[in-house]
């Protein structure tokens, strides 16, 4: 399905097992998760046993084996954000949408994720929606943000645009 684009990701990296993580990052970026079929191709092309590719994809948090929702909300739970109440934000999402970190809403609209720190700690608590950072978040600001996603469908950020395109391309195959 995604052989063509995978081609460009693999270019210059074939038979270099140490490039595995870099390749998986690019696959994840493009498809928002690591499709099983791609793992097979990556395994063959880099010369890494499939079980090892799977182990690596499973070990690192950056990779998701399950498809994610059309929008991704990431809540920073690093120490700086934690002491400023980032747990309230997870509570807000749980209360509003009934999903916990790692889950996607049933309609596939939104996935909730957590991250350990984004390096914007002075602005905490920080939330990222489809690549755009939101600082000094409060439960009510988050509620409006989620509502805006549900109204607009997909957040209109550059990053989201790029990703929707990628998504569409993927679906049309």
């Amino acid at each position: 399905m995604s052989v063509l684009t995978l081609e460009s990701i693999l270019k210059g990296r074939r038979s270099q097992p140490h490039q595995l993580i870099e390749v998986l990052h690019d696959v994840q970026e493009r498809y928002r998760h690591i499709p099983e079929e791609d793992m097979r191709i990556v395994s063959r092309e880099l010369g890494v046993p499939l079980i090892e590719v799977y182990r690596v994809a499973n070990f690192y948090k950056a990779f998701s084996l399950k498809p994610r929702g059309r929008n991704v909300i990431t809540i920073c739970t690093g120490t700086a954000c934690h002491v400023r109440g980032s747990n309230l934000l997870s509570n807000q999402v749980l209360g509003q949408l009934g999903i916990s970190p790692g889950d996607t809403t049933e309609d596939g609209q939104l996935t909730l994720e957590q991250v350990n720190c984004l390096g914007a700690c002075a602005l905490g608590p920080v939330v990222v929606l489809n690549g755009t950072y939101y600082k000094h978040m409060t439960p009510s600001k988050l509620r409006s943000l989620i509502n805006s996603v549900n109204e607009k469908g997909i957040e209109d950020t550059d990053d989201a645009k790029g990703k929707t395109k990628g998504k569409k391309r993927q679906r049309s195959h």
């Binding site: 993580i21 990052h25 070990f59 948090k61 950056a62 990779f63 991250v115």
Partner: peptide, 8 residues
């Protein structure tokens, strides 16, 4: 340059 995978 190599990117990490989010593992402490």
């Amino acid at each position: 340059i190599c990117r990490g995978g989010g593992a402490f």
